[in-house]
């Protein structure tokens, strides 16, 4: 079951800030869901192979060539950014240089 410290840890991994009230509520709700998924134990899955893609024989490799029709004009893409200059997305400094 999930205690408040677990919730805080995964919230940090998920890059989501939570208020204390949200943290407590999420802990309760997620614990109820995790309790429900225990029903899978009844299936006896120890020797089953995992399935990650429903059509395992599809998604064949394609030629190693650029798909120019799927390339987007840089200016149109940057126009959607909260902050950008002519060539780049702008972000706060990643390394503190003070």
């Amino acid at each position: 079951m999930m205690n408040p410290r677990d919730v805080e840890h995964i919230a940090l991994l998920a890059r989501i800030a939570l208020t204390e009230a949200e943290r407590d509520r999420m802990g309760r709700e997620l614990s109820a869901i995790l309790e429900y998924v225990k029903t899978l134990d009844a299936l006896g899955l120890e020797n089953e192979m995992p399935l990650s893609h429903v059509h395992e024989d599809f998604a064949p490799p394609r030629p190693d060539a650029p798909r120019l029709e799927a390339c987007l004009p840089r200016a149109e893409v940057l126009a959607q950014a909260p902050e950008a200059d002519e060539t780049s997305f702008l972000v706060p400094p990643v390394v503190d240089t003070r």
Partner: peptide, 8 residues
């Protein structure tokens, strides 16, 4: 476990 259940 869920991936195994998915195959089943």
């Amino acid at each position: 476990k869920a991936q195994k259940a998915r195959r089943r």
